[in-house]
């Protein structure tokens, strides 16, 4: 298995020394993200996120399937992540690394378990037919902070996604093509965002946001906090690593909340922009078949 290339002693010492003097290699502040960019594809549900040199593509798709027998009233929702050698030579195909397992667990906990997507609204005929929504996350380039970028891409893709409209008449399910009826967005309840702190120093007293790959290789611990803009924690994961003062963790959570709010409004802006671009004729209002729903 190719192991990740280790940074040299000089690099490790320097990154730490610079951080102790409040300097980062790319001249950012400790709590500053790299430039975040989000572009939607031509299709619904394709989102490409770049965070500095980290690049992630998420694609949401849906099909009609049979629900799980133990959950007849719920649709199926899954997120699959793939870290291919494209992102870094340390990744191999078909052999999940620790990074990949932890990443997919975090996305699962942040987006799926926090109930961001209303899975009950995916049910078509109880116990017989439901939508199966899946998001495929592809990491195109890995330069640190995959978690935040992937989570943002997943949420963006799902909020942008529209599934085909359906109707049931006399027990017959009809799925309409986009030409017949305008596709409808998913039932979305709230938008969680991951904010990852990287911890440095013997005592774990330096914490920075959005670490690059070089910084990630030197860090002694990390803490990922998932929040939505309403100030709800969806998940916290500080999985081991150097011990950090409890007070410092609370501070980190506070800053993470403001970051999550920034991410949230950035995404809202982008979605509105995209909707405007698509709605050239200005008749989208007339075409929607669904009642307005407050999304979070």
């Amino acid at each position: 298995m190719p192991r990740e290339a280790e940074p040299s002693l000089n690099e490790k010492t320097f990154v730490l020394q610079a951080l102790q003097e409040k300097l980062r290699l790319d001249g950012r502040e400790f709590d500053q993200y790299r430039p975040l960019e989000l572009t939607f594809g031509e299709e619904y549900g394709v989102a490409e996120v770049s965070l500095g040199k980290t690049k992630v593509l998420a694609k949401a798709s849906a099909e009609v399937t049979v629900p799980y027998p133990d959950r007849p009233l719920d649709g199926v929702f899954q997120i699959s992540t793939e870290l291919s050698p494209m992102a870094s030579p340390a990744f191999e195909v078909n052999r999940p690394t620790e990074t990949e397992v932890l990443l997919s667990r975090l996305l699962e906990k942040t987006v799926r378990r926090s109930g961001a997507l209303d899975t009950e609204s995916l049910c078509l005929v109880a116990g017989q037919k439901c939508w199966s929504v899946r998001v495929d996350v592809h990491v195109l380039s890995h330069d640190g902070n995959l978690i935040d970028a992937c989570c943002f891409a997943v949420v963006a893709a799902l909020r942008h996604f529209k599934k085909a409209d359906t109707s049931i008449e006399g027990g017959v399910l009809t799925v309409y093509t986009p030409a017949e009826r305008e596709p409808v967005p998913l039932g979305w309840l709230h938008s969680p965002f991951c904010v990852t702190w990287s911890v440095f120093g013997e005592e774990g007293d330096i914490a920075i946001l959005d670490a690059t790959r070089a910084e990630e290789q030197v860090r002694v611990g990390s803490c990922t906090i998932s929040l939505n803009r309403h100030g709800e924690i969806c998940q916290i994961a500080k999985l081991g690593g150097t011990a950090v003062e409890a007070i410092a963790l609370l501070n980190c959570t506070g800053i993470a909340l403001t970051k999550a709010k920034e991410l949230s409004s950035y995404l809202d802006g982008k979605l509105a922009e995209d909707a405007k671009r698509r709605d050239k004729s200005g008749r989208a209002e007339l075409l929607t078949a669904e009642n307005d729903r407050v999304t979070g």
Partner: peptide, 16 residues
Amino acid sequence: VWVGSDSPKIVIIVGR
């Protein structure tokens, strides 16, 4: 490329 200096700040500037 290796950059050395007494001050990390200068190293970062030259590196960037």
